[in-house]
């Protein structure tokens, strides 16, 4: 039976983390897969740790805040050490819908892909498409990925994504730190891994603030742009 690890990075998510975890734990897969979850508590300063401990939810407390990249990578390290076949990144803020788990795993289970991204923009099943400014930002990132990395991705900042064991092995060793979502796509493509997208439904975040805050948008775009361009000029060996 294939083992799947759901990695939930959480930073100050006391209002939503329990609900997210409950939904994941409640989820019954149709396929024969074993699902575990691990919450990576990225040095939260609210009651996130207390909740995880009291409710006995499997978690890792980062002793210092590392940011989204370092937190997600910790999950990949855990997946690698415990020999998981697949790892799924899942947001702790209620944005993602666990019912799409098997849609996102399907290309991996069939060996058609190495890495799958859950996209809001492939069709209209997701009514929530983020704000206008955010959508324009996503369009620009998609465009940059197309020009520099030669890959077509409709939702490059989606944090709902699944990796097979080879990608787990890659990411536990080298995962982009600051702007990991778009940059990891460039790295995977550079190393010739097969990336695909499946349509998923996303909800508006119920609580907390996105790691991409509004007033930081311009700064974020410049950084992501530079990171995509530079990463696309990296040598393969420097991506491993």
């Amino acid at each position: 039976m294939k083992k799947v690890l759901i990695i939930i990075p959480a930073y100050n998510e006391e209002n939503s983390i329990l609900n997210t975890c409950k939904q994941v734990l409640k989820y019954k897969p149709k396929n024969k897969i074993k699902i575990d979850l691990i919450v990576i508590n990225d040095g939260s300063i609210d009651k996130t740790e207390e909740i995880l401990k009291n409710k006995k939810i499997p978690h890792i407390n980062l002793i210092k805040n590392l940011g989204i990249g370092g937190a997600v990578q910790t999950g990949y390290k855990y997946a690698y050490e415990n020999n998981y076949d697949y790892a799924v990144q899942f947001d702790g803020d209620g944005q993602h819908n666990i019912n799409y788990l098997e849609n996102i795993l399907e290309p991996l289970l069939n060996n058609r892909s190495d890495f799958v991204i859950g996209s809001r923009f492939i069709n209209d099943i997701s009514s929530f498409k983020s704000t206008r400014a955010r959508r324009i930002g996503i369009k620009i990132i998609s465009f940059l990925l197309k020009i520099f990395a030669h890959i077509k991705i409709t939702d490059p900042t989606s944090g709902f994504r699944a990796a097979n064991s080879e990608c787990i092995k890659l990411f536990q060793n080298n995962y982009p730190k600051e702007y990991p979502e778009p940059e990891s796509i460039v790295i995977l493509n550079k190393l010739k891994y097969k990336i695909s997208e499946v349509p998923v439904e996303m909800n508006e975040r119920t609580n907390g603030v996105s790691s991409i805050r509004a007033w930081k948008n311009a700064y974020y775009m410049i950084n992501v742009g530079i990171s995509i361009i530079i990463t696309s000029f990296k040598k393969g060996k420097d991506c491993k």
Binding site: H59, N61, L62, K64, G70, K77, Y78
Partner: peptide, 10 residues
């Protein structure tokens, strides 16, 4: 180091 220690400690 932070990642490895945190995993071990947990």
């Amino acid at each position: 180091l932070t990642q490895e220690i945190s995993i071990l400690k947990s």
